[in-house]
Amino acid sequence: MITGKQIRQARALMGLQRSKFAEKAGVPHVIVKLAEMSDDECPVTLDRARQIRRTIEAAGIELYGEGAEAGARRRATPPT
């Protein structure tokens, strides 16, 4: 599950406008807009949600929590 709140936070961390994020994720702009409209589970197909999640995770961002505690943050890099 991915929430609209997580997508908004992740997109902000990535520094991308909605249209650029949608392009990167390979989904129509309207899908990202629709997904971001809710703080809860986004009302998009499972395939679209997976595409969005993969894009976020590929950018080094992790999604955490559930419900009101859900969010997005930069993934901590392990010490070298």
Rank of each mutant, 00 (worst) to 15 (best):
V27N: 05
V32I: 13
D39R: 05
F21R: 05
I7T: 10
I61M: 04
G60A: 09
E41I: 00
Q17C: 11
V27P: 02
D47M: 01
M1G: 11
R53N: 01
P79L: 06
V44N: 02
T45S: 14
G71D: 02
I61Y: 03
L46E: 08
A68E: 15
D40Q: 13
R75Q: 15
R75H: 14
M37H: 09
R73T: 10
G4N: 02
V27M: 06
Q17M: 12
Q6G: 04
T45F: 00
T80R: 13
H29F: 01
C42D: 01
H29C: 03
G60F: 03
A12Q: 15
R54D: 10
Y64N: 01
A70G: 12
I56S: 07
A10W: 10
P43L: 03
I7R: 09
A12C: 14
L63G: 06
L16R: 15
L63E: 08
G65E: 00
R73S: 14
E36M: 10
E66N: 12
T45E: 04
S19G: 03
Q6A: 08
L16A: 14
R8A: 06
K24R: 14
Q6C: 10
T77Y: 14
G15R: 14
E62P: 04
A10K: 13
G60V: 07
M1D: 04
M14C: 13
I52G: 00
V30H: 09
A59S: 12
G4R: 02
